[in-house]
Design a protein around this nucleic acid. Structure first.
Length: 697
RNA sequence: UGCGGGGUGGAGAAGUUGGUAUCUCGUCGGGCUCAUAACCCGAAGGCCGUUGGUUCGAGUCCAACCCCCGCUACCA
């Protein structure tokens, strides 16, 4: 297949959702890879725009605002500011960091929607949706929870079951509950605009598998489908094979971009329609600010569109958004979506709610000026094709034995020697120095090719590794040439070797630019006052006779106490975990009549035996004397009570609950427990020992 | 129980399209002394989870199985 070289690039990084701060997982997942890629493209003098912004709509923000008792506006202001500063601090070089609350975005999104409507892309459907009578509003997505119809898990949201990953409609849920009032919602009729994705199934599948279209009229750069990461394609295809379904593109909410049609009061665009259009509106804003034509970046088939995201966003970027773009018409489709997998932290999943994370805004406070070090480590362990793990110990090792010992040390050795023997005056003749050692020159040239290839194929980890390899080569070269020994016997040879090292350092500086921009600048600064950036193809001009600057240490060793501090911090954070969440008291349940209550047979029982259920974290198998009989109850309290310490205790249990098998064990009844705001469980027991079987009412 | 990820020298990891098994840390020995006790060389250490298959050739492809991890089931 012929692949056309693109004229320009539109690079997007996932819009961070403006209801929380960013952590290293975000950086490693989408922002660092995209930044490396973009910096590389710029150094190749390619025409590129790098787009991002805050995603500021959706039910999760309104829910959070409600919980914290502030307005959605206050939430998004806070996190937009915090996150844009974090990006700037880590050198993520967006051309624009926009936001979906901007007026231009409203215009863009509404116009996009109207065009879709005009093209007949939607099906308007009147449907029954859940409605909370107490709050007088429809319950979109996350406003409803219930049991997942696919996997049976409790606590699934209206739009998605986080347990099994299925995407859902709120009305699919079994035993739905409104998260606003805690009551069971009623169904009411409402009208929504649906995207009949099944109509697009054929071409999407074709496009994902082959990169081609059979039927498309507009010219499109055919992308190389085999260049897509395996896990990305795999997830898309499994979604497609499952059958694409119609999906509502509007919601009954008061927070978002209003549907720009008559009779649509109280309706806004679905956040997943809204957000990707944010890429487009951000581009428009950027174009406006820089006197460019935004449409070239989204509509010209010679433009290459690439979305950098985490794996949680794959289907939206690979299926839903492309469908929207094609249904709208005139837009190009993504050429690649190099989604990363997840980054774990110290043996556990990164979790915002459990505060198990390294927050970007705290990192630089704790470890000032260690920005490039984090960029280096996160790129080295980038979860490009599989989940990977960040540990502070590994972070320390990589800094000390790679950045300090290999790269920093090499540069320092060269500078010290160069000053010692030549007072920092560049040796040689002619206009500029060039390599004397043919093998070294060869290796450097090969490395350029190889790094380019890796970056173009989104293998940043490997690319960075090869830069470091060049520094290793430098150390070896220096040791072999031993100028400190040969300086007196073979001064010319020594000068050649050291000057080669100087030049090698300049190449290292250039190659490091995409990965560690500050380090690169410092290397250039040591070489010459005139170099602040080097394009990939630019000759490196170091004039014989000119003076190099004094050495500075590029990296400093990471001491144990700094690392220990971070590890402790994480452990402390884990201990106070979940407090903010569980401190919300369970909402009042709906009223019951006395008869409902009277039907429950609740009695006191004495625990006779208790053992852990094998292969279950939470379950205890408990034998209880209920007075009537001795029965087995399986209870999910193993994280709170040890089996031996509860034997002999009296508990209150519901004895006429229908029995149910749990992990193969018949559980006959349910022990009543109290749960405090931290989520800890406590038995409900009579004040003193009484007869088993005593009735509770 | 379902889904996902993974099993490569002591530890942690690379390994792109199948063709001499690589890096970092650690261990041992040597060298060097320009260098942030850093650098360089060498060595020991691997049935690349198991079994079978495809192939001239498999860590790499196919099949089955075993094991580990995460979420889930594991309901208060």
């Amino acid at each position: 297949m012929e692949y056309r070289i693109p004229k320009r690039y539109t690079i997007t990084a996932a819009l961070p959702y403006a209801n929380g701060p960013l952590h290293i997982g975000h950086l490693a997942g989408a922002y660092l890879p995209s930044d490396i890629y973009v910096r590389y493209l710029r150094l190749q003098r390619r025409d590129v725009v790098f787009i991002c912004g805050s995603d500021e709509h959706g039910a999760a923000i309104t829910l959070r605002a409600k919980k914290e008792g502030i307005t959605p506006q206050e939430i998004i202001e806070k996190y937009h500011t915090l996150n844009s500063r974090a990006f700037a601090d880590f050198g993520i070089s967006f051309d624009i960091f926009h936001r979906t609350s901007a007026p231009l975005h409203y215009d863009t999104a509404q116009a996009f929607f109207l065009q879709l409507e005009e093209n007949g892309a939607f099906e308007i459907e009147e449907s029954e949706q859940f409605y909370d009578e107490q709050f007088g509003q429809f319950l979109a997505d996350r406003y409803v929870t219930g049991m997942c119809p696919k996997c049976g898990a409790a606590g699934a949201y209206g739009d998605q079951c986080e347990k099994c990953g299925s995407s859902l409609n709120p009305t699919d849920l079994i035993d739905p509950i409104s998260t606003l009032s805690g009551t069971t919602p009623v169904k009411r009729k409402t009208q929504h605009w649906y995207l009949p994705m099944h109509n697009h199934q054929a071409w999407v599948e074709e496009w994902i598998t082959s990169g081609r279209f059979k039927d498309i009229a507009s010219p499109v750069v055919p992308h190389d489908a085999s260049a897509w990461k395996q896990h990305v394609r795999g997830q898309c295809l499994s979604w497609i094979r499952d059958g694409l379904k119609s999906r509502a593109m509007t919601r009954d909410l008061d927070w978002g971009v209003p549907v720009p049609l008559p009779n649509s009061d109280g309706k806004v665009l679905y956040v997943w329609l809204d957000a990707p259009i944010g890429y487009i509106s951000a581009t428009r804003q950027w174009a406006k600010d820089h006197n460019k034509d935004w449409s070239l970046y989204w509509q010209d088939p010679n433009t290459r569109l690439i979305h950098f995201i985490g794996k949680d966003n794959i289907v939206f970027h690979c299926i839903i958004f492309p469908i929207l773009l094609k249904a709208h018409g005139g837009f190009i489709l993504p050429d690649n979506v190099p989604a990363n997998e997840f980054l774990n932290l110290e043996g556990d999943k990164i979790s915002t709610s459990r505060n198990h994370a390294v927050w970007l805004h705290e990192y630089l406070e704790d470890l000032p000026c260690r920005k490039d070090e984090l960029r280096y480590v996160l790129t080295s362990i980038s979860p490009e094709n599989a989940d990977s793990e960040f540990t502070w110990k590994d972070y320390q090792t990589r800094i000390n034995s790679e950045l300090v010992a290999i790269l920093g040390n090499f540069v320092n050795r060269v500078w010290v020697l160069y000053h010692k023997y030549y007072n920092g005056l560049i040796q040689g003749s002619g206009d500029q120095i060039s390599f004397h050692d043919v093998d070294l020159k060869d290796m450097v040239e090969k490395t350029y090719d190889s790094i380019s290839q890796h970056i173009e194929q989104f293998r940043f980890r490997q690319a960075l590794f090869e830069v470091m390899d060049l520094a290793r080569l430098g150390n070896r070269f220096l040791t072999e040439k031993e100028p400190w020994k040969k300086q007196s016997i073979a001064p010319v040879e020594s000068a050649h070797a050291l000057t080669d090292c100087l030049l090698l350092t300049a190449h290292l500086g250039r190659l490091l630019q995409p990965f560690m921009p500050d380090t690169s600048k410092r290397i250039f600064g040591m070489l010459s006052d005139e170099i602040s950036q080097l394009f990939w193809d630019e000759p490196i001009i170091l004039k014989p006779g000119s003076q190099i600057n004094n050495p500075i240490l590029l990296f400093e060793k990471m001491e144990d106490d700094q690392i220990t501090k971070q590890i402790e911090k994480l452990q402390q954070a884990n201990q106070v975990k979940a407090e903010p969440i569980s401190s919300t008291m369970a909402p009042l349940k709906s009223e019951v009549v006395y008869d409902d209550f009277a039907r429950m047979d609740i009695r006191v029982g004495t625990i006779k035996e208790a053992v852990r259920v094998p292969k279950a974290d939470k379950l205890l198998q408990i034998t209880i004397d209920t007075g009537l009989d001795v029965r087995t109850v399986v209870s999910g309290i193993a994280e709170h009570y040890k089996p031996e310490e509860i034997i002999g205790k009296q508990v209150v249990l519901l004895v006429n609950l229908a029995s149910r098998k749990l992990r193969g064990i018949e559980s006959q009844g349910m022990i009543l427990m109290a749960k405090d705001l931290q989520g800890k469980l406590y038995f409900i027991s009579p004040e003193q020992m009484i007869d088993p079987g005593s009735d509770v009412s």
